[in-house]
Design a protein around this nucleic acid. Sequence first.
DNA 1: GTGAAAGCGCTAACAC
DNA 2: GTGTTAGCGCTTTCAC
Lengths: 340, 340
Amino acid sequence: MGVSLKDIAKRAGVSVATVSNVVNGYRPVGEASRERVRKAIDELGYSPNLSARHLRNGRTGIIALAIPELNNAYFAELADAAIREAGLHGYTVLLDYTDGDREKELLVSEGFRAQIIDGLILSPVQLDRVDLFNRTSRTPLVLVGERVHDVPYDHIAIDNVAASDEAMRHLLDIGRQRIAFIGAQTDANRMPAHLRLLGYREALRNAGLDYDPRLVVTTDRFGRADGAAGLPQLMALPEPPDAVFAYNDLIAIGVLRAAVELGIRVPDDIAVVGFDDIEEGRYSTPTLTTISPDKASIGRRAVAALIGRLDGSREAEPEEVQMPFALVTRESTLGRPASA
Amino acid sequence: MGVSLKDIAKRAGVSVATVSNVVNGYRPVGEASRERVRKAIDELGYSPNLSARHLRNGRTGIIALAIPELNNAYFAELADAAIREAGLHGYTVLLDYTDGDREKELLVSEGFRAQIIDGLILSPVQLDRVDLFNRTSRTPLVLVGERVHDVPYDHIAIDNVAASDEAMRHLLDIGRQRIAFIGAQTDANRMPAHLRLLGYREALRNAGLDYDPRLVVTTDRFGRADGAAGLPQLMALPEPPDAVFAYNDLIAIGVLRAAVELGIRVPDDIAVVGFDDIEEGRYSTPTLTTISPDKASIGRRAVAALIGRLDGSREAEPEEVQMPFALVTRESTLGRPASA
DNA sequence: GTGAAAGCGCTAACAC
DNA sequence: GTGTTAGCGCTTTCAC
């Protein structure tokens, strides 16, 4: 193996404890010894063996971030923020995928990696309260992105129902009456999809509009292809919609593309609202109106909360942190500004 | 800490060596002992402590993937493929960022994480041959995405010069004569940018066209915003271009957006070609002509090569694997099919 | 087929 | 301010 504390100690003519103290600074070390240790470290190129350190003190400095996928900019941005924040605190992030799959989410939450990670941040798609209460692993866990009530873990969430309601109110405000939803899930357990659909229905009810199940398109996944496939179905209806609220931006962007191919004008014929505010929607044609959660803050807060638990600086009851969101209006609902 | 071998051994009434052998299967174990050990493991929920294992045998089962950033779908797709492939072999991937920064690339290649990882896959932006020859770390390394000649490491690359040349030939074939390049770097060390620009110049020369430095736009980064900022500069020239070859798809997509805002038609007024074939370009308006490297294969091959080195199954000389690429023509150079 | 024990590199308790 | 040493959980050699 590499250079060890013992090698340095021998070279510098001191004990391993002194070397350790130079490296970690737990105890004061005399100037003379310190200097010789430093010199030996430089010459031999020492860096500490993390496994040994872990074995000794039970920490690796690695936290896992489990997300459904990376091919969605929403999660990529979240991961990016988390990785950078973790780095600031001296932690490294290990990414795990769940594919939005219940079994994999359970596996991860139950400590599939538990022997190597200090803590876990999970973006749940299917896990529910019961699953979380039954969790046996002792690895600290922070939930992210989804609001799950009354669960014994910190979670950094946005209010999907309220956000969806706001998106819908915007569509109603600009005079749309037949609003479709694309991205419902056959699997009722998929929490975010469920909650956004709930917000959709609530907004309809509050506006005194009927809920028409034909306007709700169920998709297998949440990608651009699903949105592109959804719009033609809706336009084939006897009374096609005049607006679409998409589960997320990727679906919305698929809808924008399908509209081009069908020769449908956005927003004139159909207005489109997404959810996530990924950068892509700021450059699409038309640009995309969307709900913008603060992804960077969510990632940072999640890491901060987890590290707080790990180092003991956070001992309060598990907390539900509601992160703010904002509706960002762009061309897909308002059209090009006349001046442009 | 958790349940250890010793706990299982006590419960099953055998020695730790026997438990270890049941878990790892290095030596045969009697049926009776095996059964009792299994039962104890089930009851107590044992899983091995990776740090201890590593300390003992020098391996963690973790490999690092160091990429410039995650907010570019190209790297997200690459990482996705790598993580999945690694999982199949029982390895876990740890992501590191370099931000395309030379210092960080050096740090990573020199084994910043070396004490916890078994091997490293690096997507270099700035490291050159000399840096790689001077590398002192003994951690196995595989290079990815960039062709660096005569370097003592496996690398899975595509030929940026040839690919750029092909993109340019397509633009020339459709009759464009003033072709701009967006995404050159002030920093001459940035290898991919350098090579793609080289392909651009070679293609111009082969076509008997002059190289006009005013048609080359230097950018700080490689994002959509850089493309959007680049186009107006070019259109302000006395003789604006009739085509743009962008360093990557994100820049190209920024160009598409800027064109909309400037009222310039794509491809009629200006044709656009990108590089990477990220999914976004298949849904943009217009859809994006681009060079398509096989990202999934690149990620998989890189992991396979690295693991081959780690487990000793790959002992040949370091190899440069050229991965294929293809030009994918879409609306940004060919326009809408008449039938649509 | 099984067990005892050394030792991987490190930290921290304990001595001086 | 410094040194000695036990022991974290594991694999593996050596004995039986």
